[in-house]
């Protein structure tokens, strides 16, 4: 009597485990197939790679993410904003006109949503960007600030920065 119960239980457990296995395997396959779509943004290196492979072309709508390069931020009199997004390997110049989120800062993470454009002399970047002809730039429609996982009071942040400078 008891053994029949046990067998039933074991059958149920096997059924549940196999169900979970099937679902996780199929989910894994789906995620693997869609891995390029799950990614929320591309880094500048990835964008340049994909441009070389012609996966991203002039006018593609993409999200570009990285850090705002130090001393690259510039605002002109037509309230256009220029800066460079970098991942410390490659960089891409960005032009944007609109409201910046509060966390936007040089050296901080940022994600720009917009179009990749080939520079055909129609776009005038400020001189210091030294954008070559036929190089590409990024025309941002939206700017999102990416927050890092560090949380600390301002005094601690200042102290850390001082320490960093001392080490340099």
């Amino acid at each position: 009597m008891k053994s029949i119960k046990m067998v039933r239980r074991r059958k149920k457990i096997y059924r549940i485990i196999s169900l979970l296995l099937i679902i996780s395997i199929s989910l894994f396959l789906i995620i693997y197939a869609l891995r390029d779509n799950v990614i929320f943004f591309y880094s500048p290196s990835e964008v340049r790679e994909k441009v070389a492979k012609k996966e991203i072309i002039d006018g593609s709508l993409i999200r570009l993410g990285g850090l705002v390069q130090e001393n690259s931020f510039l605002r002109n009199n037509k309230s256009q904003i220029f800066f460079v997004i970098t991942d410390y390997k490659k960089e891409i110049s960005v032009v944007y006109s609109g409201i910046l989120p509060d966390l936007f800062e040089e050296g901080q993470g940022v994600i720009a949503e917009g179009f990749l454009r080939i520079n055909e002399n129609s776009m005038k970047f400020p001189e210091k960007f030294s954008l070559k002809k036929n190089d590409f730039y990024f025309e941002a429609q939206t700017i999102l600030a990416k927050h890092d996982e560090n949380y600390m009071p301002p005094e601690v942040a200042d102290a850390l920065e001082m320490e960093m400078n001392d080490n340099d």
Partner: peptide
């Protein structure tokens, strides 16, 4: 695993969490 807008966990490492 993926690039996300959301920041990674701050308390994943017990020895030195990235939160004050």
């Amino acid at each position: 695993y993926w690039n996300t807008l959301h920041q990674p966990a701050s308390i994943s490492k017990f020895s030195s969490p990235s939160i004050h």
